[in-house]
Write a protein that binds this DNA or RNA. Structure first.
Length: 947
RNA sequence: GCGGAUAUGGCGUAAUUGGUAGCCGCGCUAGACUUAGGAUCUAGUGGCGAAAGCCGUAACGGUUCGAGUCCGUUUAUCCGCACCA
């Protein structure tokens, strides 16, 4: 009988479902293991062959761990909130919930065909109220906590209030006791981990929403590619910056690739340095001081208005020749001299109205303006001019810098452009200085010695840094500090299809609804566009007000701002739902809590997380932050959520193009015809109507109406298409669908082939050609099984089996699934050479193969007489005795060059081995009767003789 | 510009971690079986050479008895960040 994968696969998929084979319990004596995939956003395009790559790898590992006796949690769910379904709703009016539901059904159907071992009873969907109840709950907790820098953890906001009441903590301008209730609320808002504030945001008019930093690349939105502008808006944010240090430190604990850790470190961008106060030169600025009086810094030795700068190079403070403020700096208007006012005003306005994209595109252009004001270098008491320029960013440090043009390339370019002085204060050779005015570039490296620098002259850069910081701390004009590039995460989206905020507004101030009233369900609306007044889509909801007394959502008409208040109109961003889903899988049906303490204690954290590296600065940072917060408030039991992380590579597509004439829309010119390049434009063509880059002309004409009358200029009677490796996408017509491959070769072949393509971590273009090879392997395995014998295995057979057990086990542990598939092929080839194979060997082999090709393994296992699933079998153990050799074939080399091989008994001594080499006739040619100068003998490795 | 990674036959890749480079598969060549196609099977397949042999892991150099593997310099490709003071 032939290998009938269709029958086998549908039979066992049904069996696994009916028998709940992959159901996983939270109660078990077995050791636990948690294997997680990044849950997908169910897009309308369905799965292509790239999506299952990571799922197959994690499925193999999960199945392997089960066979090794672990209780394995291997769940799957859907990241169901997202922009595409909502954009589709705007275009068609179809409710995103319906679109999402349909897409999920399609995903599930496709996933089921591949034979994954997910415990579907634990499925979660981020758009399910039973799930997002806990997303909202976490938001309430974030709102009700602040970061206590002394305890270095999140604490209830009431803890801060108590400290303020006891006077252990001071508020600055106005004491807590004198504040009104509203002033107190506003003050506390500056500490809450989820807070509302006017902040510059990435506003995307094309999508009608704000976006987080990781959702914007090169000034345009990741989704849709619309331009993004800077805008000041009142928005919810998460104070992720409070966790910056812990997010850096935590990277030491986890088993991730160095490159991914490095990406996160860069994103967090920790830099050590100093904060220094530069006082204004009061004499020079006499006429501009009045408004600046408000900037007298607390704790300064003299009550002089000053501004704070941040520097990583305190050692260069003697080289400061000017200061620069960012255009948004609030002190500009108070210090600018009347003569400079018009010019400064104009510059600030120009900078403000520049789009983010323009600013980034013109980074190399130097611009700026002098304020007319001067500051005093606190160490040299020198008078230094204050400038404004947009190369200083408002969002980093204090938005003000001390410029050291000799040792900072940006300051250097600025100084050159405006003819400001450049003073060298660091030199590799202190006795051999050159005139900085002749330099072509600044000397930025943190090496060498300080020069022209008062008390630090002659010190090494590193020592000088420390000395300067010590000095400014002693003088009370600054201190040692750490700055992070990481920004707080903007948490509001002016969108419909997301989690509603459990927030209502009383006197314009936000209040959270009581936890017991969750979930606050997303209201129905008919129009998914922003309202005519520019409010988010939830502005269309008619029943979206909070009755404080009766604790329920009521009709908008009842809003009186006494007992009934308006609810928040923004919704949460995509990362809200995905930041804690891995925890919910541990206890997904719990209605009393996010997840029980027992479940968390049992599963701890994710042992193996598989997914794409594109989430490095998004999901993988947010989830770590989320988890650390839940750890602080006693829910999560581990600081780091994902112990080991494997990034699967991206499967790219190979697109085909036809070349359409620029002058004649119906004419297509074959690739290699001279002049084709100048006279045509490439147009994507569906890869299914191209074979080996040769276009099927009939199918092309039938493909789309606009091509019905296409004419062609052929070469050798064929139309040759162009090709390119691109991202696999529906719009590029280069998608390979897993369903087609499953129908043609079966799921087991698809699984094996995806693994066989190469290391899981590597990106590569999809190429279906080689799939026949693994299909052939399964057919050979099946044939082997049909020709089995009941006689016990011989020595040769046992050796092959145990070699395979050893190698496969090792390959899986190393996550090297491509070599594992090769190992299987070698094994089956070797066994085929033996003519017959024992049932015992086949049974063990079926267990080894079960993680990779579960359907055929299950069929073989059952036909060999088992009535339980191969998933519950025991992983075979390698009997090392079987692999012991009595002789080893030594490569014998002379002067490092291999000359011949020699079979010698295992365990032979060096003396005997050398004697054997000398006795061998072939060695005479190389020895030439000379005594060897040196002999290298590595048992079971090599014999090398140096003559 | 800064940071990270990668580089091996016509192609995807492998190499017990410093010990016979090219396993396994695709493709290709020849043959067997078939009316034919498909499927299957056998043999061959890094380059040069009739052969012995020589050369060969992006390039150059180094360490070593021995380097794809370790070190240095360079080149190319991919990814991340990008006025972050």
């Amino acid at each position: 009988m032939d290998y009938n994968f269709n029958e086998i696969e549908s039979k066992w998929q049904r069996y696994w479902r009916d028998n709940h084979t992959y159901r996983c319990s939270n109660v078990s004596d077995k050791p636990h293991f948690y294997v997680l995939d990044m849950f997908p956003y169910p897009s309308g395009a369905g799965l292509h062959v790239g999506h299952p790559l990571g799922y197959i790898a994690s499925d193999i590992f999960a199945r392997y761990k089960r066979l090794r006796g672990f209780n394995v949690l291997h769940p799957m769910g859907y990241d169901a909130y997202g922009l595409p379904a909502e954009q589709y709703a705007i275009q068609t009016g179809q409710h995103p919930a319906i679109t999402t539901e349909q897409n999920i059904a399609r995903y599930r159907e496709q996933l089921d065909k591949i034979g994954f071992s997910f415990d579907w009873e634990r499925e979660v969907r981020t758009c399910d109220p039973k799930y997002y109840k806990w997303t909202q709950w976490t938001f309430i907790q974030l709102f009700s906590h602040y970061y206590d820098t002394e305890l270095d953890k999140a604490m209830p906001i009431s803890h801060l209030v108590e400290k303020l009441e006891r006077g252990e903590e001071t508020t600055g301008d106005k004491p807590w006791s004198e504040m009104t209730e509203e002033e107190r609320q506003d003050y506390l808002m500056g500490f809450r981990l989820a807070y509302l504030a006017d902040i510059p945001v990435n506003w995307c008019p094309g999508l009608g929403t704000v976006l987080a930093n990781d959702e914007v690349v090169n000034g345009v939105s990741v989704r849709g590619g619309y331009p993004v502008e800077r805008k000041l808006m009142r928005q919810w944010s998460l104070r992720i910056t409070a966790y910056a240090q812990r997010l850096v430190d935590g990277l030491e604990q986890v088993d991730w690739t160095d490159s991914l850790k490095e990406i996160q470190r860069n994103w967090i961008g920790r830099s050590e340095g100093a904060a220094v106060w530069f006082p204004l030169d009061i004499k020079a600025n006499a006429d501009v001081l009045p408004g600046a009086q408000a900037y007298i810094t607390q704790g300064m030795p003299q009550p002089v208005p000053s501004f704070e700068i941040f520097t990583t190079r305190p050692d260069t403070i003697y080289g400061v020749t000017f200061m620069v403020l960012c255009p948004e700096h609030e002190m500009i208007e108070h210090i600018t001299t009347p003569e400079q006012r018009a010019e400064v005003q104009e510059y600030v306005n120009w900078a403000k109205n520049r789009s983010e994209r323009e600013r980034q595109a013109e980074v190399k252009k130097v611009s700026g303006v002098f304020t007319g004001a001067f500051a005093v270098n606190p160490l040299t008491e020198e008078r230094i001019p204050i400038w404004v320029s947009d190369y200083v960013l408002a969002g980093y440090g204090t938005g003000a810098i001390m410029a050291v043009p000799a040792h900072d390339s940006r300051d250097f370019a600025f100084a050159r452009h405006f003819h400001l002085p450049i003073r060298q204060v660091v030199a590799l050779d202190p006795h051999n200085l050159t005139d900085p005015e002749t330099w072509e570039e600044s000397m930025d490296a943190k090496t060498g010695y300080s020069v022209n620098s008062g008390f630090i002259s002659g010190m090494k850069v590193k020592d000088a840094m420390k000395a300067v910081i010590d000095k400014i701390e002693e003088m009370g004009i600054g201190h040692r500090t750490v700055n992070y590039r990481l920004r707080d995460a903007i948490f509001s989206r002016q969108r419909y299809w997301g989690e509603p905020f459990p927030v209502y507004y009383k006197n314009n101030r936000p209040f959270v609804i009581p936890e017991e009233c969750l979930p606050l369900c997303l209201p129905e609306i008919k129009d998914f566009k922003p309202t005519s007044t520019g409010e988010p889509p939830l502005g269309h909801a008619t029943c979206w007000a909070w009755d404080e007394q009766n604790r329920q959502v009521v009709d908008n008409s009842r809003i009186d701002n006494v007992t009934v208040f308006p609810l928040e109109l923004s919704t949460m961003p995509g990362f809200a739902g995905s930041s804690g889903y891995y925890l919910r899988y541990m206890d997904p049906r719990n209605d009393e809590a996010y997840f029980s303490r027992e479940a968390a204690e049992y599963w701890q954290n994710v042992d193996l997380y598989v997914g794409g590296a594109e989430h490095a600065t998004g999901h993988l940072i947010y989830a770590r932050f989320w988890n650390k917060f839940l750890f602080d408030i006693g829910l999560s039991v581990k600081q780091e959520p994902f112990q080991k992380l494997v990034n699967q590579g991206m499967i790219q597509g190979r697109s085909n193009f036809v070349f359409r004439s620029k002058t004649d829309n119906n004419l297509f010119i074959s690739k290699n015809i001279p002049g084709r390049e100048e006279n045509t434009d490439p147009v994507h063509v569906d890869i299914s109507i191209v074979d080996d880059d040769v276009l099927n002309i009939e199918k092309f004409r039938a493909w789309m109406p606009e091509y019905a009358n296409a004419r062609f200029e052929l070469e050798d009677g064929k139309y040759i298409c162009g090709w390119e490796i691109e991202k696999m996408s529906k719009s590029k017509y280069n998608v390979h669908n897993p369903d087609d491959l499953v129908a043609r070769y079966g799921a087991d072949t698809l699984r094996l082939y995806e693994m066989f393509l190469g290391p899981v971590e590597q990106s590569k273009p999809w190429d279906t050609k080689g799939i026949e090879g693994v299909f052939r392997f399964l057919k050979k395995y099946w044939k082997l099984f049909e020709n089995r014998t009941d006689t016990p295995a011989g020595k040769a057979e046992l050796k092959i089996l145990h070699q395979t057990i050893k190698k496969i086990t090792d390959d899986i542990e190393r996550f090297s699934f491509n070599t594992a598939v090769s190992t299987f092929m070698i094994c089956v080839n070797d066994l085929t050479d033996l003519k017959t194979v024992s049932t015992d060997t086949l049974e063990k082999l079926s267990v080894l193969l079960a993680p990779f090709a579960p359907h055929i393994a299950e069929e073989v296992y059952h036909q060999l007489g088992h009535d339980t699933s191969v998933c519950t079998a025991q992983w075979p153990v390698c009997d090392e005795q079987m692999l012991v050799e009595d002789s080893f074939t030594y490569p014998v080399s002379f002067n490092g060059k291999m000359r011949f091989t020699l079979d010698l008994p295992v365990g032979i001594s060096q003396q005997d081995a050398i004697a054997a080499v000398k006795a061998d006739g072939r060695s005479q040619k190389w020895l030439e009767d000379k005594e060897p100068k040196r002999i290298v003998f590595v048992p079971n490795k090599i014999i090398n003789i140096v003559v």
